[in-house]
Design a protein around this nucleic acid. Structure first.
Lengths: 143, 143
DNA sequence: TGCATTTAATTGACATATCAATTATAATTG
DNA sequence: CAATTATAATTGATATGTCAATTAAATGCA
């Protein structure tokens, strides 16, 4: 078999999977009970409290259905409250609880440290380069 | 919110998701009834018929549980036959059917074209560079 | 040989991804 | 205003990821 490690997209997949596992491990190690997807959605909502779930989904590059389910979990875990939107009864107001705010803040430095450790040995310029390549791939795959 | 697009790992995630969607679309467009994960596992088995499922899982960077389930589906879809291993009754012989062999061959140029299109505008050297960065990230996240 | 350990694979539970269908409401337009 | 269309969100089905527990068979060692 052509070695899988020799195929770029395989390494791409492996890199993101490794990073997710790494980030999740460190999150748990610090006693947090959120998955990184839940964290991401919570953070997106917290930073954009007026967005629809669909807008949140787009920003987080998640499926609408996934966001619906993640929001459910976040409400159940008491990180979000959900109330009906006054002007549009199809929508909801999603409001992070105090618990959410505190946890997001406590988590922030851990997340930053995770990112830093994962990029250890890659210079700022190289990261920028890498970023450009990824953006190019994203563009190419839109066709 | 710090724009998600500005975070490398978010773009990493987005890039691989985009590529998977792109590859899957093209696969379907040509009438194949496999997911790209099923295809990957089938290809790994086809190229290494003597490996254990665990070895296949490692090569494809998949969970053992996932491989078990994907193999089940491949058997059901008549891409694999499963017989008991003579020397080790814990194992199975996984043998691609003729249908599998034909499909893998027909698929190969499509896969290559997918990869090529997705990397359009990125030179060979740059791909090599990108690959190195990814390998570095994978290493960093093992800690 | 007999028992503990290791290994190969499966299974269960839950989270997420994806696609299609559905519901409820809002907006548009004839 | 009524009928159509568009939008926000949910739901169902299936596939995969992840973790833990389990089963069955092989191996190692006293």
């Amino acid at each position: 078999m052509e070695k899988l490690d020799g195929i770029l997209f395989y390494s791409l997949e492996k890199a993101i999977k490794c990073y997710r596992q790494f980030a999740q491990r460190n999150m748990m190690k610090h006693g947090f009970d959120l998955t990184i997807d839940q964290w991401l959605v919570l953070k997106a909502i917290s930073d954009n409290p007026d967005w629809t779930q669909q807008e949140i989904a787009e920003a987080a590059f998640k499926d609408f259905a996934s966001v619906t389910r993640i929001v459910e979990i976040l409400v159940k875990k008491q990180y979000l409250t959900r109330t009906i939107h006054i002007n549009d009864r199809r929508r909801f107001n999603l409001t992070p609880t105090d618990k959410a705010t505190v946890n997001l803040q406590t988590m922030q430095p851990i997340t930053e440290s995770n990112r830093k450790k994962a990029l250890d040995g890659i210079s700022k310029d190289e990261v920028a380069q890498l970023h450009e390549y990824l953006t190019k791939i994203i563009e190419n795959c839109k066709s």
